[in-house]
Amino acid sequence: MLSLSLGPILWFWSRQSVFDFYAEAAEWPVDRIHLGETVCSRRRELKLEDWLALARELAACGKEVVLSSQTLIESEADLRTLRRLCEQQEFRVEANDQSAMQLLIDQGVPFVTGPAVNIYNSATLKILAQRGLQGWNLPVELSRQTLEALLAELQEQGLVLPVEVFAWGFLPLAWSSRCFTARHYNLPKDRCEFRCLQHPDGLSLRSRESQELFRLNGVSTLSGYRYDLLRELPSMAAMGVDAVRLSPEWQGMAEVVQRFDAVRRGKQPATDPLQLVEAPPCNGYWYGQPGMASA
């Protein structure tokens, strides 16, 4: 059966909100939970020790816990944090850039990669597997067709590398050294007053015709619509996808998990008639179309 994986929280939530969220998540039918701050080094409501404590609690509830690294590494301070993450050997690490990969290779420990690591072909997987890669995420812009070809090549080469596919939520699409939330408030990044806390699901960026385009979230930019591959779960399971990633949101996450769980268990049809009245889903990438398209 497909595993359900909860991605790292991409937004900036207060310490208490994070604890509350995971207290609930511990009860959800998700198999894997990713913890850690992957977007901005200024977001320090939780420190590594806090994440580790949380990880132990969730592991005790039967969850597989993975610690995710910061996506864009810029400073020595970032590297210091990253080293501490990579040197702990209690939990597996999801490397989100080559800095993390190198540190994990130095440690000689196996690792997995997140969706922002550019894995577009099996030659890349092969060389990373030789260095400790044990699982990976499909980059969000790649299609089902590309994944099928990749999985076929892996099988030919006898490589066993479970793949996770981002299947629900706002897609993380870009990282910058500029903070777009601080820019919106005319604040310098270094004195941002942590305005992201006021926007637990980001700032909506629309065209001048009010079309939802992107979500600004600190230094990261996400899709304006939620990606949703719920109806693809049966076909993903059939093609050999190991897990689907659901990206945490402030509200309604329990229902999302329930829906995905019901569909993966075949207890509910993959196409939900209620979908029609919700915001238009975007799933174009999966079908080789523009990401924002609804296919």
């Binding site: 996506t71 864009l72 922002a116 550019n118 980059p139 969000v140 812009e141 897609l171 699409l173 870009a174 990282w175 910058s176 050294s177 992107f214 930019t221 899709s223 990438y285 523009p290 990401g291 924002m292």
Partner: peptide, 11 residues
């Protein structure tokens, strides 16, 4: 954006 890590165009 950090080059190589921007999928806005394909979105």
């Amino acid at each position: 954006m950090a080059e190589g890590r921007c999928y806005l165009s394909s979105y």
